[in-house]
Design a protein around this nucleic acid. Structure first.
Length: 431
RNA sequence: GCAGGAGUAGCUUAGUCGGUAGAGCGGUCGGCUGUUAACCGGCAGGUCGCAGGUUCGAUCCCUGUCUCCUGCGCCA
């Protein structure tokens, strides 16, 4: 049976040439002269130019067509014709036009300031750029879930509300929890570590919250955190897994949403050329490379934005920096030779910065206690975590990937806010 | 948190060496036989972010304040 309404993406084909169809959607563009009107309609699957000749409609109906405003919702019917003058080669010769809702004047036109667009985010998300960005994001996550499954990882659902912090340094959002303070999670890691003892390999995709007053193009107060944890896997093993995962994600996006990638200015072929394994260098060598580029850094310093940029601006594939100095890294990372941490950061190419933070976890309870004391943390807050090193402790590793940061690189986006529908940044939490 | 920059019509802005303001887009009315962010003409729309100060007079000068943007630090 014929469907009552068609999707635009399916009718853009020769077999619809000459066929009468109906579609539903929103007015994307509208122009008219006395005897002919054009409505470009958008339906979430594509856009189609619809042509209305005044001779095909009574006077009142034609006036309605000419008076339709941008973003109004409409039903149009007509005959599909191949036509070189139409934006994507096909147009509808309209013979039916029904207004579902005549929109008020749409506030967003050309030349808008960032602030205005952010205030009208609920309308701006209809734009092509954001539409494409969110579709690439969906495809990346689809690719990730498929890869995790293939590699024997179980998806877990850790809590978002926690009673204590996870990583020493970061600032937490405090909430009221039945009258007592609690916090929004900034990482699922410690909970995932508990779950490997039952499932061996686990992952989770959850929102993470950071209350740092960061004002940059790569920070969100609320972001989607893809984290994994695996028993009996060392640093080399987890790095290999990360390479496989990132490659699977971007290849999946390149195959599933090439049009959207192109809209964002990213050639999908470029992504398909990126292949695992990614280059690995140790922190010591990274410092030397940065110094050779003429950027100042001393051994023992953590990387700032300009250091990461110096290291990655000329690359076309991501790069791992491993074995940072122990003293600038978190308490749960395994120590090597008393000086280094068994850890790695995966940096995106083209200067987009860190997308994964990862490490082999410390499995020696005494070392963890030593590190917690170094950071001035209360041991009693971590008793449940320390239990993992008392009951069948195993070597294990894990990582956290910032979905929006990966998308920012893949989609060549200037600002991380365009990787998420409603960005939560320091001075904005509405709409 | 630190350092810069910006707030003038619904939106994007010009401007006034201090005498209360123009344009483009959008809206509306009219014109136009195929447009691609269509085009042409008429009309409506502004206590020039807010509060003080200087001045005969402030949108403009001064002080404070609020909001937003950019970069840095912190991180995924």
């Amino acid at each position: 049976m014929e469907p009552k309404y068609y999707r635009i993406e399916e009718i853009l084909s020769p077999k619809f040439d000459g066929k009468q169809v109906k579609i539903r959607g929103w007015v994307y563009r509208q122009r008219n002269s006395k005897k002919i009107a054009f409505i470009v309609i958008r339906d979430g699957t594509g856009i189609l130019q619809c042509t209305a000749k005044s001779s095909n409609f009574d006077e009142k109906k034609f006036e309605e067509i000419c008076g339709i405003r941008y973003e109004s919702s409409i039903i149009v019917g007509g005959i599909i014709k191949s036509d070189d003058r139409a934006p994507n080669g096909y147009e509808m010769q309209m013979n039916e036009f029904i207004i579902i809702h005549q929109a008020e004047p749409f506030p967003i036109s050309k030349d808008q300031s960032e602030a205005f667009l952010l205030d009208h985010r609920h309308l701006w998300i209809r734009s092509q750029k954001l539409t494409s960005s969110f579709r690439v994001k969906a495809a990346l996550i689809e690719g990730a879930r498929a890869y995790f499954k293939e590699q024997g990882y179980w998806e877990m659902f850790p809590p978002i509300i926690t009673g204590s912090s996870c990583e020493g340094g970061s600032t937490l959002f405090e909430i009221k929890y039945f009258g007592k303070p609690a916090y929004l999670s900034q990482s699922a890691q410690l909970y995932l570590e508990t779950l490997i003892f039952a499932h061996k390999r686990v992952y989770s995709l959850t929102p993470s919250f950071r209350a740092e007053k960061s004002r940059t193009t790569r920070h969100l107060a609320e972001y989607w955190h893809l984290e994994a944890e695996a028993a009996f896997v060392d640093l080399d093993g987890i790095i290999k897994f990360e390479d496989g995962l990132v490659t699977a994600m971007i290849h999946h996006a390149a195959k599933e949403v090439p049009y959207d990638l192109q809209q964002l200015g990213r050639d999908p072929k470029e992504l398909l050329e990126i292949k695992a394994p990614f280059e690995r260098i140790r922190y010591d060598e990274a410092v030397e490379r940065i110094q050779k580029k003429g950027v100042e850094i001393e051994w023992g310093e953590d990387f700032g934005t300009h250091h990461e940029r110096a290291l990655t601006e000329d690359l076309s594939s991501p790069i791992h920096v491993t074995h940072f100095p122990r003293d600038i890294k978190a308490f749960y990372m395994k120590t090597l030779d008393g000086k280094y941490a068994e850890c790695n950061d995966l940096l995106a190419p083209e200067g987009y910065g860190e997308i994964i933070g990862s490490s082999q976890r410390e499995d020696d309870i005494d070392n963890i206690i030593f590190n917690l004391k170094r950071d001035g943390s209360k041991i009693e807050d971590y008793e449940w975590y320390l239990d993992l090193r008392r009951f069948g402790s195993v070597p294990h590793s894990g990582f956290g990937l910032g979905i929006e940061r990966l998308l920012r690189w893949i989609g060549k986006l200037d600002h991380i806010r365009d990787t998420i529908a409603y960005p939560r940044v320091m001075n904005r939490n509405t709409p």
